[in-house]
């Protein structure tokens, strides 16, 4: 989409659908015509009867009956045509759905290609290595402290602890 899209090609299917729809329109127009004739004949029969021409009225009514049967027949044809048109249109939608599924599948495949098990394992391995490396660094840093430093650290810890205890006691005495 977008850009300067050109007009799509007219395929054989397109022509077939158009043909079908034109046929359908013709049937519809034919029905309209018969409907008009039916109404007119009804009128004529009435007039003939009023004028006392019973025979004529009867003939007209027979004609009318015949036209009615034609109308019923065209109804059936129309239904068939309509069904065919909608079946084709629905199939076209199905085709486009299939196309969509195919494309989605293609994308999924590509993503999977980039994310195969080997590379995941490799990645996990690398993470593991990195973690070990980090631990080594930690150890090395810890080992680097001299015993005096270590002692000072311990003393500081003790001081903090006693201070904390004193603080708690002072709170108690206030209560």
């Amino acid at each position: 989409m977008g850009g300067n899209q050109s007009v799509p090609k007219v395929t054989k299917q397109d022509r077939a659908i158009l043909d079908l729809k034109l046929q359908r329109d013709k049937v519809k127009q034919y029905q309209k015509k018969i409907q008009a004739v039916l109404e007119r004949e009804h009128e004529i029969a009435k007039q003939q009867l009023a004028a006392g021409n019973k025979g004529r009225a009867l003939t007209t009514l027979r004609q009318r009956k015949y036209q009615e049967s034609l109308l019923a027949k065209t109804d059936g044809q129309l239904e068939n045509l309509e069904k065919l048109v909608s079946t084709i249109e629905f199939s076209m939608i199905e085709v486009s759905v299939l196309h969509g599924l195919q494309q989605g599948n293609e994308v999924l495949k590509q993503i999977h290609k980039e994310m195969n098990i080997e590379s995941v394992e490799k990645l996990l391995e690398e993470t593991q290595e990195a973690r070990e490396y980090q631990r080594e660094i930690d150890e090395m840093l810890a080992n680097n402290l001299t015993s005096e430093d270590e002692e000072a650290v311990q003393l500081e810890l003790q001081a903090l602890q006693t201070e904390a205890v004193r603080f708690v006691l002072s709170l108690d005495s206030h209560l």
Partner: peptide, 21 residues
């Protein structure tokens, strides 16, 4: 403007509307 396309067959004509830009 490429927003419609007329299709002719032996029996008559039809038209297809397109989104166009």
């Amino acid at each position: 403007t490429n927003r419609a396309q007329v299709i002719a067959v032996s029996d008559g004509e039809g038209v297809r509307f397109l989104a166009g830009n």
